[in-house]
Design a protein around this nucleic acid. Sequence first.
DNA 1: GGGTACATACTCGGATAGTGGCTGTCCGAGTGTCAGAGG
DNA 2: CCTCTGACACTCGGACAGCCACTATCCGAGTATGTACCC
Lengths: 159, 159
Amino acid sequence: MRMSEGVEWGLHCCVTLAWLEDTRPVPIQRFAEWFDLPPEYLKKRLQALVRAGVLTSTTGARGGFTLARAPEQITLMDVVAAIEGPDEAFRCTEIRQRGRSGVGAGREFASPCGVSIAMRRAEVAWRRELSAQTIADVMAAAPPASVRRTRRAFSVTGA
Amino acid sequence: MRMSEGVEWGLHCCVTLAWLEDTRPVPIQRFAEWFDLPPEYLKKRLQALVRAGVLTSTTGARGGFTLARAPEQITLMDVVAAIEGPDEAFRCTEIRQRGRSGVGAGREFASPCGVSIAMRRAEVAWRRELSAQTIADVMAAAPPASVRRTRRAFSVTGA
DNA sequence: GGGTACATACTCGGATAGTGGCTGTCCGAGTGTCAGAGG
DNA sequence: CCTCTGACACTCGGACAGCCACTATCCGAGTATGTACCC
């Protein structure tokens, strides 16, 4: 089970956007150089965040990406769900109903599969923890030097 | 992010083995027919559980797979880790140190990446929940009719 | 009856394809900004 | 000074190739059981 790399990219871009309290949009090229990522592919990921309502995109010259909400209003769950998709990691295929295990069953299968329930419980805990943390929380934990350096770099080269 | 299908298979096989309190090993062919799964591939998954010390395999005629420990001693985390592998879902690639973001940094990077910390926190919650549940718990939640039907099927065809 | 040899039933481990999703790139279309020309 | 026009800088969306992990299968080797045969 491996999470898409785009989640890390998206989170870092969101945090960076939050640091620059600037309302001016940041073009994809800037992000790509900043983190040394493939521009076209990074663009796709950020577009997914736009579709999910996490980011806002501005077209045309001087355009780019901006946070759609305040950092306190963006949870890690929002970003993960937008990039990874909505489906759960564990998918119950109801193998208990297949093969000989399924024949001659009464209404036992009316109640959900116990394995599925147990796995879902763990996944809910994971999602809850993701929903409990926001971009603002991650921002706050970073060393101030990083914030200053990022702000300077983005404003200077942007002038 | 999708979890390997083998996890579901492994869990159901463990629960089934726990239901048949029998000490007699169950061959792979039996499981494959029972759940209608590809025998060869299922075998690989159960072999992984053997390597992880969750199951015991007996070679030779009348051989097969058995639980290595009591169901109370086998957590869902054991099974998931055995089949999915030990590495975490979110892998921090330290993109903050790459590209222009990395140049001119002081010792800011001594402290771990905030994004990584946040994601790890969620993943720890997930693992804790998996570790808190055992095969015995899943067993207990199943309808008694299923247990009876499974026991009968495995003992009759095994005679 | 007891011991030996063979057929049988399994697992183990490596090797090998097929497949789907993630990764990465390219291109045409649309849109907003800015500068420059002309009135 | 004002307006119009064109160049430019971006995003959007679709299409497409490469790669890797998961899925699936096959085969030879090893091992335990059970039976048949022979003494």
